Amino acid sequence: MEALKQAVFRHADAHADADGIVRTPVPGLRMMCARAPRGPMRSLYRPLVCLILQGAKQMTVGGERRLFRAGQTAIVGVDAPVIGYIVEARRDAPYLAVAIELDMAILHDLALRTAAGPPPGQAGIARVFADDLDDTMVSCASRLVRLLDHPAADSVVRPAILQELHYWLLASRHGPELRRLSLPGGGARRIATAIELIRQEFRQPLPVERLSDVANMSPSAFRRHFKATTSLSPLQFQKQLRLIEARRLMLAMGCTASRAAAEVGYASVPQFTREYGRMFGAPPRRDAAAAAY
């Protein structure tokens, strides 16, 4: 794990944004490096596996609070709002993590090809799991990180690494629940289809009828399943996407607050300012000003 930790530190230290996050050129691969405790940090996670390499982070995923320390893996099985606090980090020992987005289609395909037994019953949505970090996860993550130095190999090598990563997750003690979440006709996958539409078109109004049609549900059933899966209503989910993207535009791209508001679909800057302040605890001009220095 030490080699992976050093590789993540070198890349993240050079490329992290103001929040310590790195969106790497390798699709679905992100890193984080934080030299001091911080938070709250708000985001909307896709399904992913996060390897905690150093330090500790508290995560509230859809209302469920967990503490993850170095040597642990956090598995988020559905699209969900996350509030994170870095609780253990120092300048000489920063918090370090690497996250890899999951593909439920790969999970389902592998589940069909492996004899892992039937999926569990429909007892409810489990959004986040914890496991000990093992050599299989470290190996897969290390090879994905290595692709940063070999971009020409990405299209050939990355699919095989992702197949292996998803296989080991299915073979873990959380495999049965991941199998259930990956079922094409299951509620989680149908909601995920609507969430993908929201992610693609969050800047414009999205009637619930259109979203429920995509999920092949009635509007009332869709609202119920959406809230059960994500802990948010569809409108709340879209609003958080808009605000998170606006913050990224200000911090990473140097946009003004009014420009960021327009870019994410707000017609009213005062409304944007109010909602941004409620979510992030300060007006958007604070983050816009911070990006200027």
Rank of each mutant, 00 (worst) to 15 (best):
residue 8 V to I: 07
residue 14 A to R: 13
residue 15 H to P: 12
residue 16 A to P: 12
residue 16 A to H: 14
residue 16 A to R: 15
residue 16 A to I: 08
residue 17 D to M: 12
residue 18 A to T: 02
residue 18 A to G: 15
residue 24 T to V: 10
residue 25 P to S: 11
residue 25 P to F: 13
residue 25 P to K: 12
residue 26 V to F: 03
residue 26 V to H: 01
residue 30 R to M: 15
residue 32 M to V: 14
residue 36 A to P: 13
residue 43 S to N: 11
residue 43 S to F: 03
residue 44 L to S: 07
residue 48 L to T: 13
residue 48 L to A: 15
residue 49 V to M: 08
residue 55 G to E: 02
residue 56 A to F: 08
residue 57 K to C: 09
residue 59 M to F: 05
residue 60 T to Q: 08
residue 61 V to E: 02
residue 62 G to C: 03
residue 62 G to P: 03
residue 63 G to Q: 14
residue 63 G to V: 10
residue 65 R to P: 05
residue 66 R to T: 14
residue 67 L to W: 07
residue 70 A to Q: 07
residue 70 A to Y: 01
residue 72 Q to D: 13
residue 73 T to I: 15
residue 74 A to K: 02
residue 74 A to I: 02
residue 74 A to L: 14
residue 76 V to C: 06
residue 76 V to E: 01
residue 81 P to A: 04
residue 81 P to S: 04
residue 88 E to D: 14
residue 89 A to N: 09
residue 90 R to M: 09
residue 90 R to I: 04
residue 92 D to I: 08
residue 92 D to S: 14
residue 92 D to M: 07
residue 95 Y to S: 02
residue 96 L to M: 11
residue 100 I to Q: 06
residue 104 M to I: 09
residue 106 I to H: 11
residue 106 I to N: 11
residue 106 I to Q: 12
residue 108 H to R: 09
residue 108 H to V: 00
residue 110 L to E: 10
residue 112 L to M: 12
residue 117 G to V: 11
residue 120 P to R: 15
residue 121 G to V: 04
residue 123 A to T: 15
residue 124 G to V: 03
residue 125 I to C: 06
residue 127 R to M: 05
residue 127 R to Q: 08
residue 128 V to S: 01
residue 132 D to H: 10
residue 132 D to I: 06
residue 134 D to C: 15
residue 135 D to Q: 13
residue 142 S to M: 11
residue 143 R to G: 01
residue 145 V to T: 06
residue 146 R to Q: 05
residue 151 P to M: 08
residue 151 P to Y: 07
residue 152 A to E: 12
residue 155 S to I: 12
residue 159 P to Q: 09
residue 160 A to H: 13
residue 160 A to I: 05
residue 160 A to E: 15
residue 161 I to R: 02
residue 163 Q to C: 12
residue 163 Q to Y: 10
residue 164 E to Q: 13
residue 166 H to Y: 11
residue 167 Y to V: 14
residue 168 W to T: 06
residue 169 L to P: 01
residue 169 L to C: 09
residue 171 A to H: 11
residue 171 A to C: 15
residue 173 R to F: 15
residue 176 P to Q: 05
residue 176 P to G: 05
residue 179 R to C: 01
residue 179 R to P: 03
residue 184 P to L: 02
residue 187 G to Q: 08
residue 189 R to P: 01
residue 190 R to S: 03
residue 192 A to Y: 00
residue 193 T to S: 14
residue 194 A to M: 04
residue 195 I to G: 00
residue 196 E to W: 00
residue 197 L to I: 07
residue 200 Q to S: 12
residue 203 R to P: 04
residue 205 P to V: 04
residue 206 L to T: 09
residue 207 P to H: 07
residue 207 P to T: 13
residue 213 D to C: 10
residue 219 P to S: 14
residue 221 A to I: 11
residue 224 R to H: 08
residue 225 H to W: 02
residue 239 K to D: 10
residue 240 Q to R: 15
residue 246 A to Q: 03
residue 253 M to F: 10
residue 255 C to D: 05
residue 256 T to Y: 15
residue 267 A to Q: 10
residue 267 A to W: 03
residue 269 V to K: 00
residue 271 Q to C: 00
residue 272 F to M: 08
residue 275 E to M: 07
residue 278 R to N: 13
residue 279 M to G: 05
residue 280 F to N: 07
residue 281 G to S: 13
residue 292 A to N: 05
residue 293 Y to I: 06
